[in-house]
Write a protein that binds this DNA or RNA. Structure first.
Lengths: 346, 346
DNA sequence: CACGCCGATTGAAACATTTCAAGTCCGTCC
DNA sequence: GGACGGACTTGAAATGTTTCAATCGGCGTG
């Protein structure tokens, strides 16, 4: 409470002990096992702590304990609200377990990701949750080798050497395209890239599978590759789409995420196309902005918060349960139909 | 490198020293002052570290050093991309100073904010950057009293007892409304709330000032209060706006942030209004989604990354410079005119 | 040959906390 | 009155790192 001036270091248990006239072990007991301390002493110690403005030193605590009381989530793209919602889910679970959550953002850069991981390992965090730039990168397996619990979020573990949490992206691709076929579309674009992203490949794979099952000609499902999954790239895909000769031009687009879809939507509206009549659009993720777009966006919903909560649960299990077995949690995506695919095509 | 099994604790400097056949002080020298160690010894030690998979224990380091190598940013609303861009700016500066950045999200909840701050103080972070729920709350002054460098971000310090970084919100309100008057609007709505938020008050104040200067009747600048600054609230403000009798209904709206503006825009489009002809809209912040909206949004731009960079600079100055004096950095907002206010009204 | 110097290395102390075996004090029971 | 038990408190050890004064060994100089 008392302003403690810049005189020197922050008060420690030792100072509190001196002020309260007890041993330092007793102060520690007040902190960690209040029930074993007599009421009178406890009160005296608590008053001393308040007076000095004592705050536990987490480093010392950690040093003694050997591990920190924190989880970490390294997210792929801070600009994509999807990852925020995932982080919220993780935070909820962390809070329930009385752990802190460090949120880091690699912003798609592998070097930044590695740097963050380095620091987290140095901090001895209890576990690392990560949506990696490249799920097969070496520094990931290194984490596991160190014995640090870790979970892939929104990515699958190919090797099975650790836990992962994701939705079934192939299925997601299927339901998106089936919805479009259902609405009467016979020429559809798949917008997304780069193909190095597993998600992009799988969503496309699902799209192609259902396309073939309905007996559509392969060349009528057109892949418009993008450099990244951003609004800007979506806009540029829109330009390319508009540039196609009209007999080849798709009447609908399935975008690998909502940012692309929003960019595409914006381009379409600017170019004077009516959505969905001239161009229907389906996104992926169902971020809040999707519902809020000027033409509310049909999207494939991922249970974002639950993804996060489950990931946190798995990493905590790995951290605390000696019989832990790695688990690949898979969620089922669901189509949320809105105005951007609203009408059945004649 | 070598997978170190779950046998026990992670290797420490002591283990490295033993493996390399040197004293533990030498290992520390290799880590912190490589130049004083002979090349041969250094190499031997480095090999031992690699073999054992040694990673510095940051807690011990911190304990000894008395302070951590980290800054923290407690943001107000993880769902608002504006704060992300600010965080990016901070991270850039932190990276340059070789510090970690912990990003926390209070999500507008005072209790969560307090909890985060508690943990950060326990971690002995070097400085705290915060966009607080309430800039006058007690726990903020407590931070300062503890002697922890801290900076208000996107808020002004009323007391002047600490640094702050923000744009001139009154001016922001002025240029937004002046732009609308310029476009021929004679009845304008201000959408924003709650009034407990300083920003809302100041933007409204600027709006009113310029309104009066142009000799407009006070009652033609209508305040539509909202409960929060979200897309949803923007939509609901749209409904209220549509419900006004037509002779009272504004032809333009100035929203206290872009999320509100996007919500309002969405409602307008859904309701069949043409933007900007039936309703012109100005937002605030100029987040990326503003430009990407179906009708690109005119907005008052804040230098978001620079806000973050400056805040980081100030907190570092407070942390390292004994002659530090508190500074209220003020930036000038700029209007970015786009389609949502595109035409001059007859 | 003794001396001092220099570069390289060492050992011990310090940081703040937690834990735990050992200790003290007091009352009760035989 | 002495022993025992229980409630409470204590002191020391341990955690991993950094720092710094001290030491060591070798070499050149007087």
């Amino acid at each position: 409470m008392t302003p403690h001036p810049r005189n020197g270091r922050a008060p420690s248990v030792k100072d509190v002990a001196a002020a309260a006239g007890v041993s330092l072990g007793t102060v520690s007991n007040v902190l960690n096992r209040p029930s074993v301390v007599s009421a009178a002493t406890r009160e005296r110690v608590e008053r001393a702590m308040a007076e000095l403005g004592f705050v536990r030193n987490e480093s010392a605590r950690q040093l003694r304990a050997g591990t920190s009381r924190a989880l970490a989530y390294v997210m792929l793209d801070g600009g994509n609200p999807f990852f925020h919602d995932v982080a919220e889910g993780i935070e909820t679970a962390a809070e329930a377990a009385d752990l802190s959550l460090f949120v880091c953002n690699s912003n798609g850069r592998s070097d930044r990701e590695a740097k963050h991981i380095d620091r987290l390992v140095q901090q001895r965090v209890q576990g690392i949750l990560i949506t990696p730039v490249d799920p097969d990168a070496g520094h990931l397996t290194e984490i596991a080798q160190r014995g640090i619990p870790f979970v892939l979020v929104d990515r699958f573990s190919r090797s099975g050497g650790h836990c992962s949490v994701a939705v079934d992206d192939v299925l997601g691709g299927r339901i998106a395209v089936e919805h479009l076929i259902d609405r009467g579309h016979r020429r559809v674009a798949f917008v997304g890239g780069p193909s190095s992203i597993g998600q992009v490949r799988e969503r496309l794979q699902g799209a192609r599978a259902v396309w073939a099952e309905f007996g559509m000609p392969e060349e009528d499902l057109i892949h418009l590759p993008t450099e990244a999954m951003t609004v800007n790239e979506g806009r540029s895909a829109g330009e390319r789409l508009a540039g196609l000769p009209s007999r080849r031009r798709p009447t609908a687009a399935f975008c690998a995420n909502d940012l692309l879809a929003l960019g595409l939507l914006q381009h379409a509206v600017t170019a004077g196309l009516r959505v969905p009549d001239d161009l229907a659009i389906v996104g992926f993720d169902d971020i809040d902005f999707a519902a809020a777009a000027a033409v509310p966006l049909t999207s494939v919903r991922q249970p974002r918060q639950e993804l996060g909560r489950t990931a946190a649960r798995l990493v905590l299990d790995e951290a605390t349960n000696p019989d832990h077995v790695h688990e690949q949690a898979t969620f089922v995506p669901a189509l949320v139909a809105r105005a951007s695919t609203g009408t059945v095509r004649r």
